[in-house]
């Protein structure tokens, strides 16, 4: 697994605006939002419901586009990319961890983890090797042939993390990764994210409601009414 260069700013948002049309009315989410996240950082984003956390994460994941402004991740201008280019960018540059894991029920653990690798030009042996390595990393090597339905929430989320990192992306986006877990499982998952950030230099952006979870990040940004109102750095 590669490590990222800590000196370069990795994510840059400048003058980002986004609004939704709801029931004939235009509801602004952001107007002129700026953000810089250096490579290898671990950032938690908190804020009340409706503050724009999920919209921000969706834009960082390239599944939503800003109405205006510049959104650069690495060398890619996501705001200028078409749908197919953004899909390709997601396949190669980004991994995502969902709150409810979103594993495909008809696939085994190993097959779920292998999914992002189907989009890469790898031999079956290489794909198998990578899947075994990441499952070992998340402590589920012995569960490769099980189906997600037979696993606990914590285990399923570890499968979700394995799926997110199997293609070795530089950026990891986490959408409430502990929102559906008990405290013990949540701490295990957070420790794993911390390890991925520290040992493998993954840039992590985590949206969370949980202040305990945010403590694992290098810094926490508070978002409210479409603007960052506070920043706390880890001690």
């Amino acid at each position: 697994m590669t490590t990222a260069n800590h000196l370069e700013p990795y994510i840059q948002l400048s003058g980002i605006s986004k609004a939704y049309a709801i029931g004939g009315e235009t509801v602004p989410i952001f107007s002129s939002l700026d953000l810089k996240i250096p490579s290898g950082d671990f950032v938690a984003i908190m804020g009340p419901s409706g503050s724009g956390k999920s919209t921000l994460l969706n834009m960082l994941a390239g599944i939503d586009r800003p109405d205006a402004g510049c959104l650069r991740i690495g060398s890619s201008r996501l705001d200028q990319m078409g749908e197919a280019a953004r899909a390709s960018w997601r396949a190669h540059c980004m991994g995502i961890v969902f709150q409810f894991y979103n594993l495909l029920p008809m696939l085994t653990v190993a097959e779920n983890v292998e999914l992002p690798l189907l989009l890469k030009s790898l031999s079956a042996r290489d794909r198998r090797g990578r899947v075994e390595k990441v499952l070992e990393l998340v402590g589920l090597a012995d569960r490769a042939r099980q189906y997600p339905v037979s696993m606990s929430g914590g285990q399923q989320q570890r499968v979700g993390i394995a799926r997110a990192i199997v293609a070795d992306p530089a950026l990891l986006l986490c959408d409430e990764p502990t929102g559906d877990l008990d405290r013990k499982s949540a701490d295990e998952v957070l420790a794993m994210l911390r390890m991925l950030n520290r040992e493998f230099g993954k840039t992590i952006v985590m949206v969370t409601h949980d202040p305990q979870a945010a403590l694992h990040a290098n810094r926490t940004l508070h978002l409210d009414k479409g603007a960052f109102i506070e920043e706390r750095r880890a001690a």
């Binding site: 599944i63 197919a84 899909a87 390709s88 960018w89 997601r90 995502i96 999914l115 992002p116 799926r163």
Partner: peptide, 9 residues
């Protein structure tokens, strides 16, 4: 989910 993982349309 598949599209988020990088599968194109």
């Amino acid at each position: 989910v598949l599209k988020t993982l990088g599968f194109s349309g």
